[in-house]
Every structure is written in structure tokens, then in C-alpha cells.
Design a binder for these strands. Structure first.
Lengths: 127, 127
DNA sequence: CAACTAATGCGACTATGTTGCAATAATAAA
DNA sequence: TTTATTATTGCAACATAGTCGCATTAGTTG
């Protein structure tokens, strides 16, 4: 049902996401909070923020659920998706801006699409 | 280091993959074996088959690791990948044949790419 | 400033996956 | 064929990611 009350924990988590454009897993977030918030609270807030459309989530290649602030999306009949990228050097996960549009493929109805890329980010490449 | 000995368990698992073109998670496989193989053996065999290039793996949207027989891949300088598809009705996961080629994106070195699609498969659509 | 109840912390639990170790079985050597 | 070697297996304990019920705490409303 989403968020009904503005709590300190909620603001703390939102601040962390707003301070960088990184995507974070529940555990990375938990670490950044120096474990000052209960683990289940972290999971519940992430879920609520996603229900409210403030965050969106996706699976990393290591099968970990990541969350990031939801950007405004183009809306059209086709399914679209922006890729997610993880740097193999610094491990940061970010949303890429380019939207990818999926046309209808051979007699399947595509409803959702996820693209995950791995490689080296700009700043790690230049070091 | 991959596979050194042809064991019954190994053949059993390979047979299951060969009998259908589905992708399976360790747990789905474990269920199909009617739990007649140890869970850790299943995980170890999947890992070895992947090391040997007989299977390949990818993450589903629910953060579960799936394995499927590796098809012959086009080889070129660009990173390429075939999409994986899960039907939201029958839950089957399959590899799609169309290869997607990723050109180099804005100053990042892409090394690996994963596309996961969800929707309705052909056979569920026509029922 | 009460009253209401969403949100929290806690602990126990589930699911997925990993590891060390002794027993077993596939393979190579005799 | 028999023996020796060691990869593979099963077992149990562990690790990590995530969920849930419940009593307590703390936003919010009147």
C-alpha cells in the first residue's frame, strides 16, 4: 500500500539514494547505515518505496536485488527499459540513461524487460 | 576445473537439460530429480558444467540463478548475448535465439550483457 | 495532548547457496 | 581382473538474502 507516514528511517534511506545516483542492494544500504537500522526495516522500506514508484528494482548478475531512484520514463505502447550497469572494478551499480525499446518478438507478449551490463566504468577506465 | 569423470549423476542432469530446451534453477532441477540427488551435488555439477562451457547461467528477475545448455555463439569483437524469457503464466524459462549485439556505449567498456524478458509465451497465449 | 494505528525492532524462520570431511565410486595402472 | 588413486558424493553445518508474527514505539489526526 506504500508509504503513509514520514519517518526518520524513511528520510534516512531516501537521503542516501538522493546523495548519489548509485543503485544499492538492501545489504549495501544496511552497511551504509552502519547497521543503525533494523535489517527488516530496510527491506520493508525498500519495498514500500518501490510500491510508491519512488524506487525501482532489478536483479544483478549475482542474483542480488538492487534498488535505485525511479527516473521519469517514456510512455508508449512498446515495452521499454533502461539498462543497468555494474563496474567490475569498483563494483558500483548505476542506471544508464538510454532507454531501450523492445518491439514485439516472435509471437510472445513481452511485458517486462531487464538489461544488465557489466564492464568498466568511465572513471575506472581512466585510472 | 570442470569435469573429469562421467558419473551417473552427471548423466542424469545432462539428460534432463537435453530432454527439453528449458532453463532450470538448481531447485527446479532438484525437484525434477525427486530429491534423489544431494542438493550440494546438484550445485557442484551445475558449476562444473558451466566451467566446461556445456551450460551457461543467468539471473532471473527474481534473483534466482538459472542454467541452460550453451548454444553455439557468434563470435566477434562486440559483446553479444541472447535474451532469456520467462512466461508469467507457465513460469517456464527459455533462451531466445536472436542474438543481441551491444555496441560500445558512452565511454564504458562493456564486457558482459544480460537481457531478461517476462511476458506470455506462444503456447500460453493460444490457450 | 489523547487516541489511533503505521512503522519499528526483535527473533524466528525460509530459501538459496557454500564448504569441510569422511565414504564411495570412476578411472588408470599393474 | 584386481588394485591403487583420487574425483565425486552425501552429510551436516554454515552463510547469505530475504520474510513474517508480534509486542512496542512513534507519527498523525482530531
Amino acid at each position: 500500500m506504500g508509504i503513509l507516514r514520514k519517518t526518520k528511517n524513511l528520510e534516512t534511506i531516501l537521503d542516501i539514494f538522493r546523495q548519489s545516483n548509485e543503485a544499492l542492494s538492501a545489504n549495501l544500504l544496511f552497511e551504509r547505515l552502519h547497521e543503525r537500522m533494523n535489517r527488516s526495516t530496510v527491506y520493508r522500506l525498500l519495498e514500500r518505496l518501490e510500491d510508491d514508484g519512488i524506487l525501482h528494482s532489478f536483479a544483478s548478475m549475482d542474483n542480488v536485488k538492487f534498488y535505485a531512484l525511479r527516473q521519469d520514463c517514456i510512455s508508449s505502447g512498446d515495452v521499454h527499459s533502461h539498462p543497468h550497469f555494474q563496474c567490475t572494478t569498483c563494483n558500483q551499480v548505476v542506471c544508464l540513461e538510454q532507454e531501450v525499446v523492445f518491439p514485439t518478438l516472435n509471437r510472445m507478449r513481452i511485458e517486462e524487460a531487464q538489461i544488465f551490463l557489466k564492464g568498466q566504468c568511465n572513471s575506472c577506465l581512466s585510472q
